[in-house]
Simulated assay, not measured.
Amino acid sequence: MDTATTDRATPAARARRRHRAGVAAAATGSAVALGLVARALAVELVVDMDNGQPPMEIGVALIGGFSLAASLAGWATLAALERWTPRASSSWTVLATAVFVLSLIPIPLADAAGDVKVLLTAIHVAVAVVLIVGLRRSAHSRVDQPRHHRPAVASS
């Protein structure tokens, strides 16, 4: 099959996909970069949630994996909102901000050193800022699109 006949996305949709993929890569890259900074500073990202489980070491691979998963989930959520609601951009921004705030809750509750909590917070902030700003810029809302009106009927 010829890809030209199977790819029916408009140039704008393809550009939006490329932009969103770049945003996901940038969010993941920023988190991984902060994980590497932690490693370079000899900060061991070890967290104990006092739940009977052994303390968890948070390595660069785990940081990258979770950041990529969050990025793809954000992208998918925005795409779904664009189909289901006329104000996808503002709805997504509110939802993404709420998820970000909720993601911060476990950090102060964890049994971890202060520098670990600071770095984990920085990772959350970096990913959230890149995703919220970057994906919002790619969002399109039906409210923003021109409406097709029927011609006015002249009254006598």
Score class of each variant (00 low, 15 high):
Pro55Cys: 10
Trp75Gln: 13
Ala4Tyr: 03
Val129Thr: 14
Val23His: 00
Arg147Cys: 13
Leu104Thr: 13
Phe100Asn: 13
Ala126Phe: 03
Leu120Ser: 07
His148Lys: 15
Arg83Asn: 04
Ala126Val: 06
Val94Lys: 08
Asp144Cys: 15
Val60Trp: 10
Ala139Asp: 04
Ser141Cys: 11
Ala9Gln: 07
Arg14Cys: 04
Ala31Pro: 04
Ala126His: 02
Glu57Ser: 06
Val129Lys: 02
Thr85Val: 00
Leu78Pro: 13
Thr3Gly: 03
Val23Phe: 01
Val153Glu: 06
Ala25Cys: 05
Leu81Gln: 13
Gly35Phe: 01
Arg14Trp: 03
Leu135Trp: 01
Thr28His: 10
Arg83Ser: 04
Val99Ser: 05
Ala26Leu: 15
Glu57Thr: 14
Asn51Lys: 08
Arg17Asp: 07
Leu68Val: 09
Ala88Ile: 05
Gly64Lys: 00
Trp92Tyr: 08
Gly59Leu: 04
Ala21Val: 11
Asp111Ile: 11
Pro106His: 02
Thr121Glu: 10
Pro106Cys: 00
Ala31Arg: 00
Ala96Cys: 07
Thr10Met: 06
Phe100Trp: 15
Asp144Asn: 15
Arg147Ala: 15
Ala4Gly: 05
Val127Trp: 08
Gln145Gly: 11
Arg136Tyr: 09
Ala112Lys: 01
Ala12His: 03
Ala13Gln: 04
Ala96Arg: 02
Thr10Trp: 02
Val101Cys: 11
Val23Ser: 02
Ala9Gly: 12
Val153Leu: 08
Val127Ile: 09
Ala128Ser: 13
Gly74Arg: 07
Ala42Pro: 06
Arg147Tyr: 15
Gly52Arg: 08
Ala139Asn: 02
Ala24Asp: 07
Arg136Gly: 06
Met1Trp: 03
Ala38Glu: 02
Ile123Lys: 03
Leu109Asp: 12
Leu62Cys: 09
Ala15Gly: 01
Ser138Met: 09
Val32Leu: 05
Gln53Ser: 14
Ala73Thr: 10
Asp144Tyr: 14
Val101Arg: 10
Ala126Trp: 01
Val133Leu: 12
Leu62Val: 09
Gly64Met: 01
Glu44Leu: 13
Met56Thr: 12
Pro11Ser: 01
Val153Cys: 04
Ser103Leu: 02
Ala73His: 05
Pro54His: 09
Val60Pro: 05
Ala122Thr: 14
Thr93Gly: 04
Ile63Lys: 00
Glu82Tyr: 06
Gly35Arg: 06
Trp84Met: 07
Val94Pro: 01
Val60Cys: 09
Ala80Ser: 10
Gly59Lys: 08
Arg18Tyr: 10
Pro146Trp: 09
Ala70Phe: 14
Gln53Lys: 15
Arg136Glu: 11
Leu36Ala: 11
Val127Met: 05
Arg137Phe: 14
Leu81Ile: 06
Ala69Gln: 13
Thr93Met: 07
Ser138Asn: 12
Met49Trp: 09
Ser67Val: 09
Ser91Ile: 02
Leu34Phe: 02
Leu68Gly: 01
Arg83His: 05
Arg20Glu: 01
Gly59Ala: 08
Val127Gln: 04
His149Cys: 07
Val46Asn: 00
Ala69Glu: 12
Ala98Pro: 00
Gly65Leu: 01
Glu44Trp: 07
Ala69Arg: 09
Ser67Lys: 01
Ala33Glu: 04
